[in-house]
Simulated assay, not measured.
Amino acid sequence: MEKYIGANKWKWIEWNSEKMNQLPPSNNEDPVMTVWLKQVGKDKANSLRVTSLENGEKVINGSLIFQQSYTDENDYKIFHFFLTTNQLITVDLEITSLDRDNLNRQLARTNNAVEGFLLFLGELMNGMLVEIDQFEETLKTLIWNVRKRNEIGILELVYKRRHELLVCKNLLIPINEVKMAIDEINFPDSMDGEFFSCTSKRIERAQVLLNEYEHELDSLINLEEVISSHRGNEIMKTLTVMTTIFTPIMAYGSLWGMNFKNMPELNWHYGYIFSIVMILVSTALLYYFIKNKGWTGDLLKGKKKGSFFK
């Protein structure tokens, strides 16, 4: 589909990669466009090329992944583009979240193809910012869940959110690269316009938000590591103290469990009572010694609900 947009009637051509083979060959195609057309449909990853046509006009072409599933690596959407000052060619640009009527009204205000392409990038960023807002809600819930019920399932959610954040940043980096390439070429009448400014600010806002959320998740991960380390130390400490306290029972049990014939305690009339008293006294003295040294710490205190350590 080919149409002319705006007061200056810049050209926008929409193609589908599956139907491109049906297009009639053209003898007027520039070598740069010819190479790009051969590559379209083969690119399955982000790519960007800044070159010049035979007439010296600057051109940006490549492929851009604009949507990616958080769970399936192969579930993504990609479109291909060829951009000059007065012409924009897009292949497989299917952004279902866009309001076509509103988009057409905004496109009518653009002066050239670069502003039109910047408008598309701005709408992509707008959709990403909506997803970032949703991510913020889940992150807020996660932060409070860490305090309410700290367990292995929460740690799993922390790293799941961390992965989602990495996916978002992975989508944002090539979009920012395209914006930088447009800035590098310095297309006339585009760099100082509202479309470039709006798209740049949206990209910057998304970068700031993602970086801040990354710091929050890193803080959560560090907190989880500290809590896990503390609890591991408390468990080892508890096992050590319990083993030490019951040492007299095990020692006397082993001693009087021997089968030597000459064991005078076995013939004592009050030997059984004596052994019980000996075990209790030894255990109590050992417990008092450990308690007096402060080695039990908070082991005998119950954990408070909603507390990280107490």
Rank of each mutant, 00 (worst) to 15 (best):
V146T: 09
D101R: 05
E151G: 05
L172G: 02
T84L: 03
G116D: 11
I203K: 00
D189T: 13
M128L: 10
L124A: 07
Q134T: 09
S197P: 00
G116Q: 12
F187A: 06
L165Q: 04
E177N: 12
D189H: 15
V178P: 01
R161I: 03
N126T: 13
L118D: 04
D92P: 02
I95T: 05
V146F: 08
E137A: 10
I175P: 00
L139Q: 08
L93M: 13
K169S: 08
V91P: 02
L139R: 07
V178N: 02
M125I: 06
L98H: 04
F135L: 12
F120K: 03
I132S: 06
N111A: 14
C198I: 12
D92A: 01
K160Y: 04
F117C: 05
R100A: 13
K148T: 10
L121H: 02
N170I: 01
D192R: 14
V130K: 11
R109M: 12
N186S: 15
E136D: 14
F120E: 03
E136C: 07
C198H: 09
I132L: 08
R109E: 15
S200K: 12
K169H: 04
G122Y: 07
D133R: 15
L139D: 02
K160H: 06
V158D: 00
R105S: 09
L124H: 02
T85C: 10
R105T: 07
E184I: 10
F120N: 05
D189Q: 14
E123Q: 10
K179I: 15
N102K: 11
S97A: 12
I154C: 02
E137N: 13
P188D: 11
G116H: 10
E156D: 13
R161K: 12
V146H: 00
D192G: 13
L83D: 06
N86L: 11
N176I: 02
L129N: 03
C168Y: 08
V146P: 00
Q106T: 03
V91T: 10
T141D: 15
K169C: 00
D92V: 02
G193V: 11
K169T: 03
N102F: 05
C168A: 10
K160D: 07
R162M: 05
T110G: 08
A108E: 12
E94D: 15
I95P: 00
L129S: 02
N150S: 11
F135I: 07
N126W: 05
I152S: 09
G193M: 14
F117Q: 10
L93G: 05
W144R: 09
H163Q: 15
C198Y: 13
I175G: 01
I154E: 02
F135T: 11
F82H: 05
D192V: 11
G116Y: 11
E164L: 04
E184Q: 15
N102V: 07
K148H: 10
N170G: 07
V130C: 04
